[in-house]
Each structure stands twice: as C-alpha cells, then as structure tokens.
Design a protein around this nucleic acid. Structure first.
Lengths: 179, 179
DNA sequence: ATTTTCATGTAATCTGTTACATGATTAC
DNA sequence: GTAATCATGTAACAGATTACATGAAAAT
C-alpha cells in the first residue's frame, strides 16, 4: 500500500465519491500538502478495490464508460486506522528553499529578489484566501474536534502557519538580496 | 535537466567535490528541503558531465574505481544562473499533514495525540540543533549577504521557521485530540 | 460555436528508493 | 577483529507526470 492509497481512504472518510470527485476533493485543503492526478488515482482505486478496502457501485456515466462510485469498507477503515498513528515519513521537495541555497552567489541578485518578492506576494494571496476559508469553517463548526470535518480545519491551520512563515522568510530574503 | 541536476550545480558553487562528498553536502542544510541518494547522484553527475555543465578530474580512489572530483564549468554556472530566478514548482509531499486530515475520525484519538506529541518533540529537538548551528554560522559571518555561504544561513532560517510552525501546530493538534 | 465540467481509462516517460556489488583505509 | 568512513557504480522496482484517447451535458 502506497501513501496515495491511504490518502484516498482518508478522502473517502468524508463520504462515497467517484475517482473524478476524489481528484477534486484532494485539491482542498490537503492539496497544499499532498497531490495526485486522475491518472494516478484511477489505477490506485482499482488496486484498493482488489484489496477490498473500497467497493464500487457502477452507474451510467456521461462518457463512453460506466461511472463508479467508491465507498470505504470496514477493511478499508481498519487499514486506515492502522496506518494513521504510525510515524510519518518526511520526503522534502522544496524548490524555493533549494534556490535560496545558491541565491546569494547568483549573477543577478535583483532578479533573485524579484523571485522572492513574488513568493511573498503569492503567500500573502494564499493567506487572504485561507482567512476566508477559515471564517467559513468556524461558522460551520468545523473547528470542533467532534465535527467530522475537523481534519479540514486542522490541515488549513498548518497551511496558514506555513504560508505565514514563508511570507516572513521570503520578505526577509528579498530585502537581503536588495542590499 | 531535472531539479536534481540544478541542486548538484548549486552544491558545486561551494567548491569542487566528489559524488560522495556531494551526497554528504546535500544533507546539511538543504537536506531539510531536498534529498537524494548516491544512486541518484552518480548517474546525474555523468549526465551533467555530458552536457558540459561540470568537468571531472580523475584520481586514485580508495576502492576498485577511480575517484572523480567534479567542478562547475562556465556553462554550468550559466545554466544555474538561468534556472535560479525562474518561478519554482511546488510539489507538496507531507504525510504529517495528510494524517491530520483523517486524525479526528480515527478510532483511537489518544494514539493520534501521541503521534503529534512526537512530531512536536522532534520539532523541538530540531530547533535546538538549528539554534546551535545558527550561532556558529553567525560567528563565521555567514549571515552576511556577501558571504559565499549566506545561502546556508538562508536555508537554515527557513528550516527554523518551518520547525517552529510545525511545533506550534502539532502541540495544538495534540491538545485538541486529547480533549 | 466554444469552452468547461463531468467522467474514465492507458501509455510513455521521468524521478526516486531499495538493494546489490566491490574494496581500501581509519577508528574503536 | 569489527564497524564506520571513503568511494563508485548498476539493477530492479515503485511512484509521479505528461500525453493520448473518448464523449455527453452544461455553461458561456
């Protein structure tokens, strides 16, 4: 079982969905911390189905193929419960940080400053969007641990913190590069 | 050219090195944001060499094969300078965040709390180590933008911010899960 | 009329991890 | 003597991206 498999099981705790819907559902809010394309999701759902972690109910689709709605099975829930408390692997891939390593010895420092000013601007935009999402979530009571969508709120909180940190750092780095 | 190729060019701005040394050099500080094994690094160095971005000087090695010391060429420096200011791709892979999405609906919340308490403890340990590294860097003047190792300092700063954010978030999440 | 959304799949390619394979020197 | 460090490679596998392929319904 790959991490993607568990990601899909996690998404299915929010209710049954088609592969297409899971592709959308993954974008917000966990898309800030995990992504997958439909080309990766469809074969993985087939594997989960073979393992008995999900079941599919077929119906008429809009295109040439049948539409399959997947649901979590008891076995799937068990597999997820087993995986969740295990220590998580950390696989860092952050190009923005990587570029900072060589930024100061770059030929054109002012262009590097522009890059980090853009990073800061993007972070500010993300924070504005997150702030609105947060308000909506609080209104709906998702900030309560007993609400089934508390996880969405928790992930958003990490996103807010990460973007705030990124904003401060990129602003600092850009100002250093402007000197 | 893959991101790894540019990562290796970035590492070589600190001076010539063997594949083995690059494997070590990558661990600190950029290992917090980008990693690669030697099995990935050796073939990539061969590719960079074919492209003329690096040159290798061979010498007697400790094992059965010759030891190759790689240096950045003018073309390599150009390729790096070209890549650096371009907007960076963001490929998120964060299992800790992913697990939070399903944490609240997990069967055993107190085990999930333990997971995030451990995350917080690890972050605290990382922060302690980073603090010492930061002091050493400041003593050596790496916090000055004109120092060739300013990039190491900049990456460490992002690391400190990230761990601080992770610590605060994991502590909060654990306390929520304990309720 | 054209684009977007819904909906599912496969193929080719690229990237990354784990395991296999060798062997000298240095530290404990 | 045993383990760690230095040093370089390949092979097999797993994971992820991009491109190819089809087609209805709804929105612009």
């Amino acid at each position: 079982m790959s991490t993607l498999g568990f990601a899909l099981l996690s998404l299915l705790t929010r209710g049954p969905a088609t592969g297409y819907q899971l592709t959308r559902r993954m974008q917000n809010p966990i898309g800030h911390f995990w992504t997958a394309n439909h080309s990766q999701i469809y074969p993985e759902l087939a594997r989960l189905s073979e393992l008995g972690h999900v079941t599919a109910t077929e119906g008429a689709g809009p295109g040439p193929r049948a539409k399959k709605t997947y649901s979590l099975t008891a076995r799937g829930r068990e597999a997820l419960a087993d995986w969740l408390p295990k220590p998580a692997a950390f696989q860092p891939r952050n190009e923005v940080a990587l570029k900072a390593y060589a930024a100061a010895c770059a030929a054109d420092r002012s262009r590097m400053a522009e890059l980090y000013e853009q990073v800061a601007a993007d972070a500010a935009a993300a924070l504005a969007a997150f702030g609105e999402e947060e308000s909506t979530m609080v209104e709906h009571g998702w900030d309560d641990i007993s609400h089934p969508k508390f996880g969405n709120y928790a992930v958003l909180q990490l996103g807010i913190g990460s973007q705030r940190n990124l904003h401060a750092w990129a602003t600092w780095l850009a100002s250093q590069l402007r000197q």
